[in-house]
Design a binder for these strands. Sequence first.
DNA 1: ATGTCC
Length: 500
Amino acid sequence: MKTYTAGDVTLERVREYVWEIPREGKMGTPARVLASERLLSQISEDKTLQQLRNATQLPGVTKYAVCMPDGHQGYGFPVGGVAGIDAENGCISPGAVGYDINCGVRMMRTNLTMDDVRGHEEELVDALFDAIPSGLGGGGVVESGIDTVNEVLERGMAWALDEGYATDADLAHCEDEGVREESDPSAVSTKAKNRGKNQLGSLGSGNHFLEVQRVTDVFREEVADAYGLSEGQVVVLIHCGSRGLGHQVCTDYLRKIEKRHSGLLSKLPDRELAAAPAGSRLAEEYYAAMGAAINFAWVNRQLVMHRTREVFEDVFDRPWRTMGMELLYDVAHNIAKKETHVVRVGPEGRPVGDGEAVEREERELFVHRKGATRAFPAGHPEVPGAYLDVGQPVIIPGSMGTGSYVLRGGEASMELGFGSTAHGAGRVMSRTQAKKDYWGGDVREELEREHIYVKAQSGATVAEEAPGVYKDVDEVVRVSDALGIGDTVARTFPVCNIKG
DNA sequence: ATGTCC
């Protein structure tokens, strides 16, 4: 059997693009990396593989911990990691969701083409930058008080609908219709709410952005038709999360869980994997607080989209509905959710990997997706009606110089990754290193030569997000497609981009 | 990712 060794980790090649760290020692299950050899070598350069192996020690982890092709090191658990953990006898781990709860992406269609937009790029990027708050700290489309925040945390996009910021169609084309029902605003600290109350409708910083793009390629015509995508069409991609509110929720619960479940913590290989046992009060509270932050992020992206429609109305001087500005889909990539999956069970009733399994069973799991996108295939009941026959849209943002992809959930996603695929290109260079290698102004000029117009609050952010700091998104998507976990539907190229 | 340390 072909193997790949990086430091103290050896992976066995199960088949093309599937690598396995066999179960040994304290590992609860095997671990798997879904990658080409080139991507695996990039993944091996930081602590990703150690973190993935550590994750199999979380109590109740089933099948295998999985790393997607864009994986890299994160807080305790890889970005690009997926773990399906028994929701009855296992645990839930904030580090395996991430600090930016419900960080995610939405794509809005338009019926405009580049002929409509050409010559307006700079006007458009300026107008978007002026209208949509970005960067660190406060300022949002809506300035709200605690009461409004509580309603947003409770109701998600249903709140936006009632307030006139969303349409029924917007809700219908969002993962979970933009509402996590199992949410509890009272589980969210006042500190978190105070951080969030003036951030509703804001991009934030880092890799978050809003980008006007054109569709350059269509790979699966019948799926693209169902998604309303065609070559030359202009679309808008929005990538942001739950801002300071979600960050505070993660911080608050990490602290509480470390303290109250120190016994479990002492058995784990990394403090950053701190977890609350399923059924414990803190597990319930974290799940409900995370749900509230999830709702906050959906409203955040909705308000940014609402404001984008208004900007297009100003720039192109007609109502947004006449420009076909409909939500294609909104999908989270930092989330944990109770879902039912088929897992393999060993002779002692414990979830195991392929080799030891004696039977297959349906179990309710906390599916932790951190930097991984839900990718349910055609026919799955949670895929919206309009897309049921073709599969759930998966939106994979690339860098601001290379473009992005729309995929559809593939038939193999349930078996290989608990219904998930990649979430982006994935960094290959730290932010610190990026600022040494690049200068924001140069990056911006380089992009402008390719007719990509970038406007950012800070030149440092442009340097940190230079196209060269990312893995090859084409390669990430090629692997996803080849494995059948997410099938390519269309590719886009940037027109203008605003960021923190 | 993040009022990049209460």
